[in-house]
């Protein structure tokens, strides 16, 4: 009796879900390799390849919409044409006056100088505000007053003050990148573990030495968060800043594409901005990772 009982519980067919008619369910070796392959493919398609399928469908729909002129050629360019132009623009200045890489370099220079200046001023200011309450009380009201103003709203004033050159554009980007740099560095310095500050002070560290040896490294993860947000803000403000009159740059290229009714140029510009932005974030995260090697952040 006990034998029959154990046989019964060990039979995998008995263990298959209620209502399942599949006789192979629970078998140690599936009898039909074809069934296994098909099942495996379906599972892979559902789990991992799903995103690839959605991308393929997206591009096919896009191409189809253009091919069948559902959206006219002056409104939208098909991906095939965009790709062709992307490659061609590496070697031609037509019709917007510069090579793609020249536009990209110009924009990169602008965004990075704004971002760099914002980091140079914003991070130390935020850290010091977080460490010295008096400085915080002094600077905070003005900072909080100006913080909610979108950087783009500064464009008219920037033009009045600084003209239409690179400085005005850099100023707009600076404003965009400055705020997250300050706020995150401030928070980082504020969150310093007071016990560690005492460790430094008990050994005779001045307030500034404690700030430098404990406060700044302790804030480092938050500083990097700020840098990432700053870079993001700088890059997203780029197109708006290049509206201020430009003769080069990705924002300018997009504008030219609109004026020439060439949606392919617009899309190539958009794509380049997106790819370069992703590339910059990637570089920053690489730097961050090598900086924090061995340390939990």
């Amino acid at each position: 009796m006990s034998v029959s009982l154990s046989q019964k519980t060990l039979d995998p067919a008995e263990l298959r879900p209620l209502g399942s008619k599949d006789p192979s369910w629970g078998r140690l070796a599936a009898p039909n390799p074809l069934v296994r392959v098909i099942k495996g493919l379906l599972r892979a398609a559902y789990q991992e390849k799903l995103s690839i399928i959605s991308l393929i469908v997206f591009f096919l729909l896009w191409e189809g919409v253009c091919y069948f002129k559902i959206i006219g050629p002056y409104q939208l360019a098909p991906p095939s044409k965009v790709l062709k132009l992307l490659i061609a623009k590496l070697a031609t200045q037509n019709p917007d006056g510069a090579y793609l890489w020249a536009h990209a370099l110009s924009s990169l220079g602008l965004a990075l100088s704004g971002f760099g200046a914002a980091t140079l001023f914003g991070v130390p200011l935020g850290l010091l505000m977080g460490w010295y309450p008096r400085l915080n009380h002094l600077v905070r009201p003005v900072f909080d007053l100006l913080r909610p103003i979108p950087p783009i709203a500064w464009i008219p004033l920037a033009i009045i003050w600084l003209g239409i050159g690179g400085v005005a554009k850099g100023f707009i980007i600076f404003l965009a990148a400055f705020v997250p740099g300050v706020i995150n560095s401030f928070t980082g310095a504020r969150l310093t573990n007071p016990v560690l500050v005492r460790v430094a002070k008990i050994h005779g560290a001045s307030d500034f030495t404690a700030f430098w040896r404990i406060g700044v490294p302790s804030a480092a993860p938050m500083i990097f968060t700020g840098l990432r947000l700053s870079l993001n803000a700088a890059w997203t403000t780029l197109v708006a800043a290049e509206l201020v009159a430009a003769s080069q740059g990705l924002g300018f290229m997009i504008q030219m594409g609109r004026r020439l009714a060439r949606p392919d140029i617009v899309i190539v510009g958009m794509l380049t901005i997106g790819l370069l932005g992703a590339f910059l974030s990637w570089i920053l995260s690489k730097i961050e990772r090598s900086f924090f090697a061995g340390r939990a952040s």
Partner: peptide, 14 residues
């Protein structure tokens, strides 16, 4: 503490 010749072991991790 300003003379810096003290040592202090804290209750919590330091």
């Amino acid at each position: 503490f300003k003379k810096g010749d003290l040592g202090f072991v804290f209750q919590e991790s330091s």
